[in-house]
Design a binder for these strands. Structure first.
Lengths: 99, 99
DNA sequence: TGCATTGTTCGAGTTTTATCGAACAATATG
DNA sequence: CATATTGTTCGATAAAACTCGAACAATGCA
């Protein structure tokens, strides 16, 4: 399992970030990561199948919203808070703050 | 031409707002309104046909992002800054601030 | 080695969204 | 009233995105 590619903050695209966060399932993922800091996919799967979740994590990763660290068989995800805040100041916190 | 329906701030949905702003054409509209304050559809039409623009304005209106005032034959659009800021503090300015 | 766990990838089906021309409605103006 | 202006609505097409099962890959452990 090769390591993932994570885009550099300079290449984050606002449209991609907004599109990624516009999906309720992905917004749930982001909110959960905000609370727990780091989580693997399995702990975040609710009723959805693995393949759907894997897709959502991919969208979040490729837009720059989260980072995936591989540890053994688990893929641990966490928000790229600092990098997002550097590129789009205040955006993530404004979105997380919204009820 | 009946007046438009503009949703109340309490009913704004974050997903809908993000989805509306995730489209580059609509983000351009929002940025333009930010600059000029108020504009009708015609002045915002670039290369796209009227029907496409009308659709984008509808999406922006129904998500709560802009208000459309009818004056004669023109439909004047402006951002609902205060209402958006009340419902989602800091969100619009964070998005407008992003390059 | 055999098996369970974790997650990706593939492919197909469904839904949503965007695009745009044509026809229409409403207002203004000559 | 005739015509131009502004923008919506309709309908069809195309593109994008979501969903999910099945097969696969990689690790960990007995």
């Amino acid at each position: 399992m090769p390591a993932y590619h994570h885009p550099a903050p300079e290449t984050f695209e606002l449209s991609a970030v907004l599109r990624a966060l516009a999906d309720p399932a992905r917004l749930d993922i982001v909110r959960h990561l905000e609370r727990v800091g780091e989580a693997n996919c399995a702990t975040l799967i609710g009723t959805r199948p693995k393949s759907s979740m894997s897709h959502h994590f991919q969208v979040l990763r490729e837009s720059g919203i989260l980072h995936t660290r591989i540890e053994g068989v688990q893929h641990r995800n966490s928000l790229r808070r600092d990098e997002l805040n550097t590129r789009f100041p205040g955006l993530l916190s404004a979105i997380l703050q919204a009820s």
